[in-house]
Computed example of a mutant assay.
Amino acid sequence: MAKRLRRWRAAARFWSAELRLLRERRLIASSELFDETLYLYEAPDVMREEAEPIEHFCRFGWREGRRPNLYFDPLWYRDRYLKGADQNPLVHYLTVGEASGCRPVCYFDPHWYARTYGLPRRVCALAHFLTHRRSQRFAPNPNFDLAFYLDRYGVEIGPNRDPFAHHLRFGAVRDIDPSPYFDSERYRHSKMTDPPPGMRTPWAEADLRVPLVHHLDTQCRSS
């Protein structure tokens, strides 16, 4: 009797977990926040295994830090808002996170974005940005001056391209300024010689990237 009860409980836990995963997959699939092309590009092992990308993300990917899109970092989000809880960060963001002001990554500010571009309350700011980011009409945060950036690098970026993705790609090696009010080269030098309290090195390897991203990440962690 006791063995049968244990089996029943184990089966109940299994099917409960499977039902939860099914709900999560459906929510994410309808959210416009999952970029299958990016996911498979960054996870060639998933492509080789011919695994379904969203299912892989829900079962394993978010725990491994695999990104569902360019503007969502599951490990960063989990560490900042979920305190390491065993909960799918993207599901949390979709259900309560964005409405509560949680950022999907340090360089996308959903509340600022919704206010600035007059989005209706029910529209997901991140989904709107991901849909329109190549139009070159929307910035992901107030520190990125879109007009300034396009005036300087528009020819290099070309049409139908995401300007901030260009900044993410080249900002770390070229110290590109995101606005007339942010000097990337000066910022990098200041952090290399005067590290923030608590940093193990003047510029931790994980932060040796885009100066603006480092600045925004530091702001988020101190708030």
Rank of each mutant, 00 (worst) to 15 (best):
Y149R: 00
M192F: 06
R221Y: 08
C58R: 06
E64Y: 04
N160H: 06
F182L: 08
P211E: 02
R186F: 10
R122G: 05
R48F: 04
R13Q: 02
G198K: 05
V123F: 03
T131E: 11
H92K: 06
R200D: 09
A51M: 11
I28H: 08
Y117C: 09
E36N: 12
A147M: 02
E98N: 10
S184Q: 04
R26W: 05
R122Y: 10
F129D: 01
C102Y: 15
E32K: 13
F34T: 09
G61C: 15
G97D: 04
P140L: 03
P159S: 03
Y107N: 13
Y117M: 06
T201R: 07
R121N: 05
V213H: 06
V46H: 13
A29P: 14
R13H: 07
N160A: 04
L90Q: 03
V155C: 06
E205K: 09
S30H: 10
A206K: 07
E156A: 10
I176Q: 02
F170I: 11
V96A: 14
F170E: 07
I28N: 14
W15K: 09
P74S: 04
T218G: 13
E52V: 10
R80N: 01
A10I: 07
D175G: 07
D183Q: 09
C106I: 12
P104Q: 00
F60P: 03
R200H: 15
G84W: 00
W62I: 03
G171S: 04
L90D: 06
R200A: 08
W112G: 07
R78W: 00
E49T: 12
F148P: 01
P197L: 05
W203R: 02
A114F: 10
W62S: 01
I176R: 07
T37F: 14
L21S: 13
R25P: 13
V123T: 11
T116D: 01
A10D: 07
T116S: 05
R26F: 14
E185I: 12
M1F: 12
A99T: 12
A125S: 05
G198V: 09
T201W: 12
L94Q: 07
R134S: 04
I176T: 15
P163N: 00
H189Q: 14
Y77N: 00
F60H: 14
A147G: 04
A127G: 14
N143G: 15
L19Q: 11
Y71V: 02
P202A: 00
E18Y: 14
M1P: 13
D175T: 08
L212K: 03
L119Q: 04
L27K: 15
C124E: 10
I28D: 10
T131Y: 07
P163V: 00
D145N: 12
R161H: 07
D207Q: 09
L94M: 06
I54N: 05
G171C: 05
E185H: 13
P44D: 05
Y107K: 02
L70R: 15
M192S: 04
L212P: 05
A11N: 08
P74R: 05
A125G: 13
D162A: 05
G97S: 08
L38Q: 09
F144Y: 06
R103K: 12
H111K: 15
R66P: 08
R188D: 02
R6L: 11
R122S: 15
L33F: 13
S16A: 10
D162S: 08
